[in-house]
Design a protein around this nucleic acid. Structure first.
Length: 809
DNA sequence: GTTAGGACCAATC
DNA sequence: CTCAGACGAATTCGG
DNA sequence: CCGAATTCGTCTGAGGATTGGTCCTAAC
């Protein structure tokens, strides 16, 4: 019966909806910041909370390329500034030529020139009033005009091995308004961030950041670590466990208090603007401050953020709040915006770790270092090769030693080429784990690995555990994100000495920690694992037992195994450990290459309460190098398999305003199933992924017409705090097809409450939007009873396994 | 002063 | 964890 | 064979359920 239900779903999914061409709705990746927000004092001010501003923001949001060009043009006009001191921005070389999207042939020729001269200058107040010296702009414009749009500065045709990033025309020293050795003003960084945020091209972003690094290296190298940390929003290595303890709620309060505005007013602005940082900046700019506080410094902001993170105990929130307010009060231009974003943990400027690492590498190539040619000696292709080489070194080193402090110290002291000798893989320091790329099915896997040896392993539904055994016997356990989980897993620490064979003195292994029933040995669901104590657990009172399923070896007896092929690493793994049943085992693996055998193996894995398979090459391209190819493994999860899916038809009953790039549309919806027994709609999950831009627009438009003032009496929805309640409610009017990986007993959602658990309802795990079901009425939505049935039908829920769903494909 | 519950956060997937 | 969009590089197509 | 078109890989930032830990507040 259930199978037939699934079958029905499969058919339903088969007829594809007309795919919307993404080009039909040109939405710029980055919305230029609204002028109204930046210009506080100088212009007739329009508060963002006022309706006019909202309308304006809305228009801007749909801006096409034209608008961005306008922005560029406006930014070109240099200005004077009332706010000293003003460090000049690093100048970008004009290697990049804007390639206007082929669909949009309407852009004017002017866009080119504008772009060449000042690719990232926008009309924001902060940047409009920059120092962009006219001479500089003119200088930059000239060679560009001469070279033409499809050639780089040297006039070489684009396409061959033309310069990736030219790195000309940046006067490292002149960019600094501070004297060498003095602290770098935070304003310098804030302006760089501003330019980066306005720049969609990654190569130019890389260049902007690299130039900022160059200037700081040349003048105040002590500030390089703070700079890197602020740019990537990492206060300390993950394994040191330093957390800000600040979230949106606290930030909203802090902003409202600093700016003397109500929380409600801030929230109202958020609806329009979609970014608390911008709201803070706008509110600050409008404030009249009597005494001017000392300008913020890069190292000062960094230090304060760390202090905030380390604040704990009685009145901690108050003390954190005070520090935040201090910074915000001292903030000028866009400083407030980026301070707020740092505290929120989302810089959203289009530059993240990977790009920052590249910039860092490039900066050191372009800076004279011990035993290296002066950068001036490097030109053209030689320079490019050098940049690429440096990039690889830095990324590689970072993946083996994810610690900016050590890397930057080593870079400053010894330069790039010596870096690997000073920051290498060590037991006790986590390695960035290798990740897997999702695939849509076995056929894709076979496609990809058609001509090389590969192996399949069970994909266990637990938690990644990178286990280090150090010389001397100490054991450390790290998570997927390099957090130190040692005190969470004293049981793993205890089993390691028993598991290693006698020749092993130190080892790093990669594994999945999975909850198991010690009596039966059965694998338990992830939900059970997550109830384990997280900190300072003691071996004696561990409620949930764990079995470690080891699948890789990265390091053995002082030697790195990262460069060796998987076949070899796996052999060493098996040779180094002995199985301790229900405590440490090897991941179930099969080297079979024929389709039927793999299919069978996949089915078995699912019957064994696993998520599916991991597929990895054994010999070629089989090293453990997350830096070079982070997704060299493939995963086949059961929810991608036709016939094994949990697909539902659900009704959107509420929605949340989107933030960031979803500003102006709903960012997420609350979905419900239908319970015909008492004619209610019971919430089963929120959903915020699977929509393309067009769907976001259409759904927003369509459902905005169905808003009701209050939620209906027959909506059974979570008992959330006010701050989590949907921003709007809808009448039941649409049915959406939604895919999920699993169903879980929910502490908040209401679906099928009473049918499986006496009080709790059921929720979807990893829900994603597939399409609107125009063919279904709201009362044809998946019923509460069906949800319960689907829950009970899951492999891990079943007692007597009758999972013979193989017939479905 | 102590404790219980709630709000919020950070972490896993 | 899932997903979409953007850029840039690689590869394929067509004259 | 070269330039244009297309595909592919990488990176970023939107968003999900669920849990334990921390701090605050209100009641005792």
């Amino acid at each position: 019966m259930i199978t037939s239900f699934f079958k029905k779903k499969v058919e339903a999914t088969a007829d594809t909806p007309a795919p919307a061409s993404a080009s039909s709705v040109p939405r710029p990746a980055k919305r230029p910041i609204d002028e109204a927000l930046g210009e506080g004092a100088s212009k007739t001010d329009v508060s963002p909370s006022e309706p006019t501003a909202g309308a304006k923001a809305g228009r801007r949001r749909k801006a096409t390329i034209h608008d961005s060009d306008d922005e560029d043009g406006a930014g070109n006009a240099a200005d004077t500034t009332p706010v000293p001191p003003l460090p000049p921005l690093p100048e970008v070389s004009n290697s990049g030529t804007r390639v206007v999207a082929p669909i949009n042939t309407t852009s004017e020729p002017t866009s080119m020139e504008m772009d060449e001269t000042a690719p990232s200058v926008t009309a924001t107040a902060a940047l409009a009033q920059t120092d962009a010296k006219p001479e500089l702009a003119a200088k930059a414009a000239q060679p560009a005009a001469a070279a033409g749009p499809s050639a780089n500065a040297k006039g070489k045709p684009v396409g061959t091995t033309a310069a990736k990033i030219a790195y000309n025309k940046y006067d490292v020293e002149a960019a600094a308004t501070w004297k060498a050795g003095e602290p770098v003003p935070y304003l310098f960084l804030a302006r760089v961030f501003g330019r980066i945020e306005a720049e969609p091209k990654r190569l130019l972003i890389t260049e902007l950041m690299a130039n900022a690094f160059r200037t700081v290296i040349a003048t105040s190298p002590d500030d390089l670590l703070p700079l890197m940390s602020l740019a990537t929003n990492k206060l300390a290595p993950a394994y040191e466990g330093i957390e800000l303890g600040i979230g949106d709620s606290i930030m909203i309060k802090a902003v409202s208090e600093t700016c003397g505005r109500s929380v409600a007013a801030i929230k109202a602005d958020m609806e329009e603007v979609g970014d608390l940082g911008e709201v803070a900046m706008a509110s600050r700019t409008k404030q009249v401050t009597l005494s001017k506080p000392k300008p913020l410094q890069v190292r000062g902001v960094y230090k304060t953020l760390k202090e905030i993170a380390l604040t704990s105990g009685h009145e901690a929130m108050k003390r954190k709040g005070d520090k935040i307010k201090q910074m915000l009060v001292a903030a000028q231009e866009k400083e407030a915006q980026y301070i707020v974003r740092s505290l929120q943990g989302k810089m959203r400027i289009g530059l993240a770790e990977q790009t920052a690492l590249v910039s860092l590498a490039h900066a050191f190539v372009l800076t004279a270092s011990p035993g290296r040619d002066a950068p001036a000696a490097l030109r053209g292709e030689a320079l490019q090769e050098r940049l690429i080489e440096a990039e690889a070194i830095v990324k590689q080193v970072y993946s083996e030693m994810p610690n900016y402090e050590l890397i930057i110290k080593a870079l400053l002291a010894h330069g790039i080429d010596e870096l690997p000798q000073h920051a290498r893989l060590t037991a006790g320091v986590p390695v960035k784990p290798m990740l897997a790329k999702p695939t849509k099915g076995l056929s894709e896997v076979l496609d990809r690995f058609s001509n090389c040896a590969f192996t399949c392993e069970y994909k266990y539904d637990g938690e990644r555990a990178q286990i280090h055994l150090l010389e001397g016997g100490m054991v450390k356990v790290y998570s997927r994100n390099s957090e130190d989980n040692t005190t969470k897993y004293p049981d793993i620490a205890a089993l390691m000495p028993r598991a290693i064979k006698s020749h092993v003195t130190s080892i790093i292994l990669d594994s999945e920690a999975v909850a198991v029933d010690t009596k039966t040995g059965a694998i338990l669901p992830f939900q059970v694992l997550s109830t384990r104590k997280r900190k300072d657990a003691s071996v004696d009172d561990i409620g949930v037992k764990v079995c470690v399923f080891a699948f890789d070896l990265l390091y053995l007896n002082g030697e790195s195994y990262l460069q060796r092929p998987l076949a070899e690493r796996r052999a060493a793994l098996h040779a180094s450990l002995q199985v301790l049943p229900r405590e440490l085992e090897f991941a179930q693996a099969s080297d079979a290459a024929d389709v039927d055998a793999i299919q069978e193996f996949l089915l078995e894995s699912i019957k064994g309460n696993c998520e599916g398979l991991m597929i990895k090459t054994l010999a070629e391209n089989a090293t453990y190098e997350p830096s070079r190819r982070s997704l060299n493994w493939l995963k086949v999860k059961k929810d991608y398999l036709a016939g094994m899916t949990d697909s539902c038809d659900l009704v959107p009953i509420g929605a949340y305003y989107g933030k960031g790039k979803r500003t102006g549309v709903y960012g997420a919806y609350l979905l419900a199933c239908y319970n015909p027994d008492d004619e209610t709609y019971e919430s089963v999950c929120k959903i915020g992924t699977g929509f393309n831009d067009e769907a976001l627009q259409t759904l927003h438009k369509g459902l905005s017409e169905r808003i009701i003032q209050q939620k209906r009496a027959y909506y059974k929805t979570p008992n959330w705090a006010d701050s989590s309640q949907p921003d709007v409610w809808f009448e039941p009017c649409q049915v959406w097809e939604v895919l999920a990986a699993d169903l879980s007993i929910s502490p908040v959602h209401m679906a099928a409450a009473g049918l499986v658990d006496p009080a709790k309802g059921i929720a979807l795990r990893f829900p994603r939007f597939l399409r609107v079901r125009d063919d279904k009425g709201v009362e044809d939505a998946t019923s509460a009873e069906q949800i319960a049935e689907m829950y009970n039908n899951q492999a891990c829920t079943k007692t007597s396994s009758t999972l013979e769903g193989g017939d479905d494909y």
